[in-house]
């Protein structure tokens, strides 16, 4: 049985697994990019009230393996609270929290380090605050943060595989289940690897290209 045969025979199962993975990604990416960006902006604005707690949480999370965090939220926390949460929700919440704080740190640092001279130049040219944000701050900050944000999102997509360990039927768990039936690990995991490469490599490539492009623009400072 070739990789192609396996993909054809179990296409429905793979499609279902992929759908779950993409659903997770959609929620995790949206939450991370929207809430994380807002949190980063607010943390840069209110450095004491929000900035310090945000940095502290991001620092603690950066030291904790994602898998431990996921398991802790799935077993001990739910046991302590006496509740049972759908593993899909637990996985999404866990990875979203990490994404939110990762994104917020990138945004907060970009805002904190934004070169004030560009705003001064806009001021003395008579450009309004609104247009300064629109034409100068936003494009520069986007150029500065986009590559890092893309890299983080690729990492989050890969992290969804951990959800299989708490019984979420995403693509990796589906692959494991099929393998347990037909025992073709080389073909199945090769197919899975190719699938992830096909999604992640272009994203990583784009991030690298953006980084190269925008580092060039930024070198003037």
């Amino acid at each position: 049985m070739t990789v192609f045969d396996i993909l054809v025979k179990y296409q429905q199962a793979f499609a279902d697994g992929l759908l779950v993975t993409f659903q997770m990604c959609l929620i995790i990416w949206s939450a991370g990019l929207i809430i994380g960006s807002l949190l980063g902006i607010l943390a840069a604005k209110w450095t004491k009230f929000l900035g310090i707690p945000t940095r502290l949480i991001a620092f603690v999370l950066s030291g904790m393996p994602m898998l431990v965090f996921l398991f802790w939220l799935h077993y001990p926390l739910q046991s302590l609270l006496g509740i049972v949460v759908d593993p899909f929700i637990t996985a999404v919440v866990t990875i979203s929290i990490i994404n939110i704080f990762s994104v917020s740190e990138v945004v907060r640092i970009a805002l904190r380090d934004f070169p004030n001279q560009y705003i001064v130049a806009a001021k003395v040219c008579g450009i309004s605050s609104y247009h300064t944000v629109l034409y100068i701050q936003l494009p520069i900050i986007l150029r500065q943060t986009l590559p890092s944000l893309l890299m983080i999102q690729v990492g989050m997509l890969q992290a969804t595989l951990f959800a299989s360990l708490i019984s979420v039927n995403e693509i990796f768990r589906v692959a494991q289940q099929i393998n347990s039936v037909i025992y073709k690990p080389v073909e199945i995991y090769t197919a899975l690897g190719i699938l992830f490469l096909a999604i992640c490599l272009p994203m990583n490539g784009l991030a690298l290209w953006l980084r190269k492009q925008f580092t060039r623009d930024y070198s003037e400072q």
């Binding site: 003395v124 040219c125 520069i140």
Partner: peptide, 28 residues
């Protein structure tokens, strides 16, 4: 502040790095 009635050219220039020189000139 009466900008750009009063305007400044600094030694460090402060050109916006994401714009070409022409765009820097015409953006204001």
């Amino acid at each position: 502040a009466p900008w750009p009635k009063v305007t400044v050219v600094f030694q460090q220039l402060f050109l916006w790095p994401h714009l070409t020189l022409l765009q820097n000139i015409t953006l204001p």
